[in-house]
Nucleic acid binder design. Structure first.
Lengths: 236, 236
DNA sequence: AAAAAAACATGATGAATGTCATGTTTTTTT
DNA sequence: AAAAAAACATGACATTCATCATGTTTTTTT
């Protein structure tokens, strides 16, 4: 059962300033606000499904999203995450291809706006700033995925898990107690790292024993980031 | 020692029609031709180096290019290839980040033009067609890398090698004898697949024994594409 | 609150694949 | 053409890591 909620207005959107929409004009904002739709999602609900067509882009107003593909054996592979202010679904729209990944919400009360294709295209052609930001997002993302490819191809599971924790830290940040601000199951962690759930469980226990992290259910506290970085074998 | 060669003119460029520049105006073509530079490369020469800054994009006029990253243990990971008509280096330019990969030529007499940043930015702002093509290239590429991530994370080496052969087929095409039109060392194949050179050698021998391919030095003939597709475990 | 389901945890085992050693062939350099 | 280097090939072995089995804890449903 979906709760009632205030439909977010772009004019007052808290995540606007840190999004691709941060410096569009007043008239564009109101146009955007009029053209968009917005939906609330419970934890685990599907926002869009791999293989489908999309007719616009989605903008995360509140909550956290995982984007994943289903591999040939039916196993989920998490490709990336999105949070407040991020857009998703733009890849399929701009390449005019089916969605390459599915998106589901990771938290209750996730709010996601939908901006129709027509409006997106209009902003691309009429607002060079928006256009360049889009090019920047895409090309940055492409660089990140290339790094992931190299890691998956060359690093052992232990290093990849350590690196995943650091990436999750950078993506969702730590609270004041150094806990990573996202809760994922062991299985989901395995589906990022590209390994078996049991391996994640074992390695997390090792990291804990080595005082790199501490665990409380799905909450992971980073106790020693430099040592974790060394474990991940990253130097940048 | 670099041979003399006719500097290619964009007006008469044979690869223009199949590139991002296929439908720019006459005046834009001549502007492009004036602003660009062009270089010849021998086999194995570096076009650009990971970590450096770039001040423009490169357009492959003739020849084949591999793009790769160096992993934390110094091992090369091939991210993608480029051929006649393809552009490279655009990711770094558009994201305003250092180059995420190195590029080297795979053949003698590779010719690559360089288009300065200023010219690229001008075309982006002034030619919506060019702009959308760029967005399309980036987003398509992003979709391809996502697939590769899922495969690397989930498929065994045998399947990945079979799939690599099929991707090479699609990228460089077959000649009339069904030979893949690119010559790579076993080590380079390993650096695509994410495995050891010895594993590639062994698996190629198996594929040969199973009549999926035949081998003549670095030339790979695809004898049974449907069976290779099944071996790769792909269904699309 | 009880029952069921899902998630977490740990040990035992085996398969996939990386590493090392060694030899042959091919290519490049002198 | 000879020598050197690089690439290719194959066997033996070791290691990582996935799978299976089983049990416990936590969460969800009834």
């Amino acid at each position: 059962m979906k709760k009632k909620f205030e439909i977010p207005q772009c004019e007052t959107c808290g995540s606007k300033h840190k999004s691709i929409f941060c410096d569009i004009s007043k008239s564009e904002v109101s146009e955007l606000s009029d053209s968009k739709g917005c939906n609330l999602y419970n934890k685990g609900q599907v926002v869009f499904h791999e293989g489908n067509r999309t007719n616009g882009i989605y903008c995360v107003n509140k909550g956290k999203i995982k984007l994943f593909q289903i591999g040939s054996e039916g196993k989920e592979q998490i490709i990336r995450f999105a949070k407040e202010g991020d857009i998703i679904g733009y890849r399929a729209l701009l390449s005019d291809e089916p969605l390459s990944a599915s998106a589901t919400s990771l938290e209750e009360d996730t709010a996601i706006c939908f901006i129709p294709k027509q409006q997106v295209l209009k902003m691309i052609t009429e607002n060079p700033n928006f256009n360049f930001k889009l090019l920047k997002i895409l090309s940055h993302e492409l660089g990140e995925t290339a790094k992931i490819i190299t890691d998956l191809a060359q690093k052992p599971v232990r290093e990849r898990l350590a690196e995943t924790l650091l990436i999750l830290k950078d993506t969702f940040e730590l609270d004041d107690e150094k806990n990573i601000q996202v809760k994922l199951s062991r299985e989901e962690l395995a589906n990022i790292v590209g390994t078996a759930t049991e391996s994640v469980i074992r390695l997390l226990s090792e990291f804990k024993k080595d005082k790199l992290i501490s665990l409380d259910g799905r909450t992971i506290k980073l106790l020693n980031i430099p040592a974790l970085t060394r474990t991940a074998n990253v130097f940048d």
